[in-house]
Write a protein that binds this DNA or RNA. Structure first.
Lengths: 254, 254
DNA sequence: CGAAATCTTGAACATGATCAAGCGCGGTGG
DNA sequence: CCACCGCGCTTGATCATGTTCAAGATTTCG
């Protein structure tokens, strides 16, 4: 059994060629020039698919790979010895995972698939070439890391200083906005997330999360159905949380 | 009055030459090769000093600069409209600030000096050259961003899932360890931090923070004096919080 | 159809927030 | 030199937000 199979996933030859990458067609993302596209095509060594609930990366592992999500949802998390879990952020198409592990040798958090997920697999060993020959891509990598940092800053503010209601409002607005940008929640689709996931992200208990979500539902800001959450009024949620999102355009990815 | 003077700071010609940078001499940091050192010398366009309590960077500003702390302590924070403040992380010698602003145009958090601070000032405009000509430094920048991300992950876990006592234990162990690595708390020096700062980092009220610190002091883990905190038993604090720190060596900086 | 998740709700409890007041020390000005 | 002032630390009392426990409803899936 290979490491990949242990993950309940399947490593396969690349099916989606970078030239036809569906992400590049979304205006949300920046475009490559032909030379970069060529390199990225070579950088990508395969695809990995994982079922919902499968582990993609595990804390403590010395992962040799770097991934970009091509389709599906996942989440990054850490757990304490006694099982308390904190979800750090969600991962959607275009997001990079495993950078920490690639640069610093060891993963300090785990990643789990929330839905069925397809990942582009990159060879860590070629990172050096990327930095040496493709400064624009290197710049993008740094940009991506800085973006994640910004998101974590926001979450920290939220968990540290916002009330449960504000926190939940902020998180759902945040998730919905990101999902929209990736084309994941067009025409009334739901966020494929359980209340337990939200609780573990918000730093609240499951019971209190449920009661808090009920209040938001009573205010017609969201609606819970089919094991997921439909955001009805993103602006209302933002207002509740006192959150204004800095708009991002031409965002890089690899 | 220039922007710099508004900060209660003073922009001066570089006094400390990179060739004699005191940070490079600490084994904690990685060394440059002569070529890199040469570039960094040119990249550095001056020094900024700021008094304790002065603002170094302000949320919303379009900062043109990137800084590395040469001496002193500062902290990054965000505030909500009604004044609730969350400290995101502390900044010590060797740490870089303003990367988010440099890459993405606008600062999403503020930075304030905790003690008198000396900063190396870098010209944002030359970042492009850095990425084009010095891939190792570019790699370091990415590494630095990934490191900050790792730290924020830890803090998020702490605030989201640890009790007040565990949280305080973790934070003080974390700060003390970092300060030691930078040579800031040799021979019984104290962390130059008020209980209000700790409260705003922990996401707790001032009163509760005080009561929590008292418990730690009763257990002889720390000692409060001269407006600062002396950590008496770092290992004890780590154990209390259930925290094991991954050791870092040859850490990059710019 | 039964089993396993997931969501929901009420009640008792605990952790941490808020309010209020006092203390101690260093700095300032008379 | 001393009195006063202000900031930061301390402490008790009361209050509120969120946790834990317990149980039932609902949905999904084998």
């Amino acid at each position: 059994m290979t490491a990949v199979e242990k993950r309940n996933g399947e490593l396969i030859a690349a099916r989606t060629r970078c030239e036809h990458c569906p992400l590049r067609q979304r205006e949300h993302f920046r475009d490559f020039d032909p030379d970069e596209l060529d390199f990225v095509s070579q950088f990508k060594t395969g695809e990995l698919t994982a079922d919902a609930g499968a582990s993609i990366l595990v804390e403590g592992a010395h992962s040799a790979h770097l991934f970009t999500v091509l389709a599906g949802w996942a989440f990054r998390y850490k757990i304490l010895e006694d099982g308390r879990r904190q979800i750090l952020n969600f991962v959607m198409p275009g997001d990079l995972i495993g950078l920490q592990g690639s640069l610093m040798g060891e993963m300090q958090h785990s990643v789990e698939a929330l839905t069925a997920v397809t990942l582009c697999v990159f060879e860590r060993g070629r990172l050096r070439t990327l930095f040496e020959k493709y400064p624009d891509l290197a710049y993008d990598l740094t940009w991506i890391a800085a973006r994640e940092e910004r998101i974590l800053d926001e979450h920290l503010l939220s968990i540290g200083r916002r009330s449960a209601l504000e926190r939940a409002g902020y998180l759902l607005a945040f998730l919905n906005r990101r999902a929209r940008a990736c084309g994941l929640v067009e025409h009334g689709k739901i966020l494929p997330i359980s209340q337990q996931h939200l609780a573990d992200t918000l730093g609240l208990s499951l019971v209190h999360t449920n009661k808090t979500l009920r209040k938001l539902a009573d205010r017609k800001l969201l609606h819970w159905r089919e094991r997921g959450c439909e955001v009805l009024d993103e602006d209302g949620l933002c207002e509740l949380a006192g959150w204004v999102d800095p708009v991002t355009r031409g965002r890089p990815f690899i």
